[in-house]
Design a protein around this nucleic acid. Structure first.
Lengths: 237, 237
DNA sequence: GCTCGAAAAGTTGTTAGACAAGTGTATAAA
DNA sequence: TTTATACACTTGTCTAACAACTTTTCGAGC
């Protein structure tokens, strides 16, 4: 035939449904701290009056927040903001990761992180190295179990991915996003060793040294041990 | 006696709301491929009858999937599954990739495809193997660089990823497959080598044999050669 | 027969009201 | 004071309807 005459992607101005708009509005209120962690949201009826929409729409908006793990509802009680410290990772499949899934994700990360470390060892610039060292330092300065420590851990891996000079590695890390965070949190929670931070820092140090020495084999090996260590700490059995 | 207290950590067995249950069910259907990417979900009315709940509940469940970027709804049209390739990755969807970017993508694929082949060799079931063989056969039957051939090629790698028994590999392959497709389509027009299909088929065959023999090292090596070969063919310079 | 356009059917978006189920609080009885 | 009960409140779910939009169908006109 004479080509499918594909429809223009111009499209309508994407009039956003009310539920989505309200969900985003609520997300802002929560992130800005207007509604504190642990505090209760206004009742659905109040919100519906406040936003000038039906309760159904409000419920759909709240349903999204629940899906993202931002709030938790209890029948008869209300909807409360879940503290950031226990906030389930969002994105990537929408369902919470159980232990087996975390292990599966680590299995995916292993070859990726190894290749990432190898390429970083070969291609890193002084600036890249500095970024890696910064993350390591922030991890050293952080409290055990703290949010800052977790973030520093994530930044460490992200900095290495950026040092590959291949933006897709960094992008893919971002794609994993919250799921990656979940694996680290899970690994720490499941660990019987009280010194997780110290062990992690030490493993990171070996990776840094190998990268600094521009030794791809050593960097890959050090990263392998790091990832495997996380898996083992995760599945003590 | 014994103090009323009974703050009862026992609690109710966390009776999950219907919306959440249905949302998870739908997520499974989508991830398992029962509802293919791009395909439309049954109508809300159908789903409500199918699950035995009201349309309200179904809408709340779908609302969650939308929030996770798993599906997209258009008023009057329906709800469709958004392809994994464009899921939350605005980077890769719109812009056509130049040759250097394609090579960067292949560099990311290499370690993951190798690991994928290794795991597939270790864990594949007869059904998995059949799926891989099917893709290979479809590639054999296809015209040089036809749409069917391209699809069969992508399916081949996807089938191997599925055989890893780790859904993250399958998801990732779908993610990259979509990103590479457009560029391959464009690149094949400029291709001067008339035997690309034959070469590809042969490389695939070696991978199949290694997987069939449950030899992870050979499978990884064969995949490595395949990816490297693709890189060379892609950049004849 | 073919094209074009309008009606019709189908689907999601939104509203309203109602009842069920669970929670928290105030009140009354012991 | 303590305990038990009733009541108000909140989320969970259902039903019915209409609005907004899309796709299909079908007939008029050429």
């Amino acid at each position: 035939m004479t080509s499918g005459e594909t429809r223009a992607l111009a499209q309508s101005p994407a009039r956003t449904p009310a539920a989505e708009e309200i969900a985003q509005h609520l997300v802002v209120l929560i992130r800005e701290g207007v509604i504190a962690a642990g505090a209760k949201l206004p009742t659905e009826q109040t919100l519906s009056r406040q936003f000038g929409v039906s309760r159904t729409v409000v419920r759909e908006a709240i349903s999204r927040l629940k899906s993202d793990g931002l709030v938790k509802s209890r029948q008869g009680s209300g909807v409360s903001v879940v503290p950031a410290s226990v906030r389930r990772s969002f994105k990537l499949q929408g369902t919470a990761l159980d232990r087996r899934q975390v292990l599966a994700l680590l299995e995916l990360r292993q070859p990726l992180e190894m290749a990432s470390a190898r390429l970083a060892a070969l291609r890193h610039t002084p600036g890249d190295l500095q970024e890696i060292l910064d993350a390591q330092q922030r991890m050293l300065d952080s409290q055990e179990w703290s949010e800052e420590g977790l973030q520093a851990d994530l930044d460490f891996h992200h900095a290495i991915a950026k040092a590959t000079d291949n933006s897709f590695y960094a992008d893919f890390m971002a794609f994993l996003g919250g799921a990656l965070r979940a694996t680290i949190v899970a690994a720490r929670l499941a660990s019987t060793n009280p010194n997780v931070k110290a062990i992690t820092v030490e493993e990171h140090l070996k990776i840094i040294q190998a990268i600094k020495a521009r030794d791809p084999d050593a960097a890959g090996q050090a990263m392998l041990l790091h990832i495997q260590g996380a898996s083992l700490r995760m599945a003590p059995e």
